[in-house]
Amino acid sequence: MSSQKKRDQLILHTALTAGRIMIENGSEIERVEDTMTRIAHNAGAQTSQLFVMITGILMAINGEVGAQIEPVKRRTFDLEKIAVVNDLSRQYADHKIDLQQFSNRLDHLDSVSRYFPFWLQLLAAALVSGPLEVVFRHNLPDFWITCVVGMLGWLVYYLLSKFIQIRFLSEFAAAAAIGVLAVLGVHLGLGNSVDDIIIGSVMPLVPGVPITNSVRDILAGNLVSGPARGVEALVSAAAIGFGIAMVLQFM
């Protein structure tokens, strides 16, 4: 294989991996296109053609290799990886790392995920639920029980997500658990208002990433990916709603 061909291959591999990592972890499409074009441009490709969708990327550069496809199979929310890809791309543009290092670091980034420690995530879920209940409903006495219910609901979501690959089912189960726990809490005299506890406790499950990205994608003219994300957000919201509605119907 000629060295030019090898180099083209490496450019494509780097750009496609960067793009896939960004989409997998919840980036908007415009940013992905921008980053991939920059990588190809900085690596010396004169032209690059891109077709980025939420389920796959197609990229071609002028040179000795043909266009390549990179499917996007899973979708999670890990915004740190997007920031890291962004940093790496900037470093590459400033010639602080070369293309091979860039590619290696991307592969490494792809294989490890550096989340916050588990206890901190649990605490964060509690601290989304309680304060928002107070902000929305001004019901200070129910602050503690909302923190606890929100934390347990998020725990259910977290554990189920490990075993079931379908996020909507985990959300449904977590919402149902929140409903049951809220009713139980009020029944045991730990809280006053079922409504307020539930409103606060479902807040950690709100699909904030798909909602924001959907709006931004549609505005940027990505009329396939934007509505697709909108559907993702809508199904999430519906799953949470059904979980709550089911509990309210029976209790």
């Binding site: 920031a83 879920a125 304060p131 950690p204 904030g208």
Partner: peptide, 10 residues
């Protein structure tokens, strides 16, 4: 801030 932790913001 806490929601940021849940979606793993740097």
């Amino acid at each position: 801030l806490a929601f940021g932790i849940l979606i793993n913001i740097p």
